[in-house]
Design a protein around this nucleic acid. Structure first.
Lengths: 132, 132
DNA sequence: ACGCTTATTGATAATGATTGTCAAAACCAG
DNA sequence: CTGGTTTTGACAATCATTATCAATAAGCGT
């Protein structure tokens, strides 16, 4: 059975309160900083569970860390991420969903999961970069 | 200055000879198996260089490893990767290209790069998994 | 061909994120 | 409250990758 513990709540809340993606380590630090004695391993477990149950998104940063983010929408979706400031926009992509399925099927693949993320410079950072 | 060493050549060749993506560790093992005394650190360095110079593609596997692959096509393309045996199919995706551009533009993003990879089980591994 | 300067190598230590372990504590149904 | 399990958390273990640094070897000028 799945139990409700304050730890899991704490992780969920901390994640909700976070803008953009955050690493498990960083989230653990944040929690500690606000006085929670939660253990690191527990944060990993909680994040893993949230990701599995679809309540959180996860992706790999270019340097190999796993980053997590609270899902605002319930469905499956992808991200548009500013590589400079970390701003994240959730994007629905039915178009891509069906494409991925089609391509997988055409090649005999099953259980297709996909990683579709767009990195770029957001409007703001574009301006900054231009003026620099 | 950039020097030419047999080690770098060896890595390039081993990568060329490999179907699909391979991890640095695996490539090192392969090289060792074929009698090369090349060091692990050197394989990492060589792969990093190849990736930087655009002679190789790199991506992160879902479990955090960095995978490398010699570029066969010069153009931009994506991958369909078997998560069990590593079989890789290169897929062109004009559809996705234009989608990514459109989405980025609509949100004010510039310099959009994207990561679009589909992981699944290839025909073969699907059969194996089913019979298991 | 020779030596010299300096990039490169490679064995190993260090790092850093993540996962495994397992006894103690917490949860929830009855 | 009590019993049966799940969950926690401190810490060890793992695993990929990076840093260290003395020894080696590339490629230049001669």
């Amino acid at each position: 059975m799945k139990r409700n513990t304050w730890q899991r709540e704490a992780v969920r809340e901390a994640l909700d309160a976070t803008e953009g993606f955050i690493s498990a380590q960083a989230l653990h630090s944040t929690l500690h900083a606000s006085g929670s004695p939660i253990g690191l391993a527990t944060v990993y477990r909680a994040l893993g569970d949230l990701a599995t149950s679809g309540e959180a998104d996860s992706l790999q940063s270019p340097d190999g860390e796993s980053l997590y983010r609270a899902c605002t929408t319930t469905g499956h979706h992808h991200h548009l991420i500013c590589r400079n400031c970390g701003l994240t926009v959730e994007i629905a992509a039915d178009e891509v969903e069906s494409w991925a399925k089609r391509v997988a099927a055409r090649n005999g693949f099953t259980q297709a999961a996909h990683v579709v993320d767009v990195f770029g410079l957001c409007e703001n950072c574009t301006r900054l970069a231009a003026g620099e």
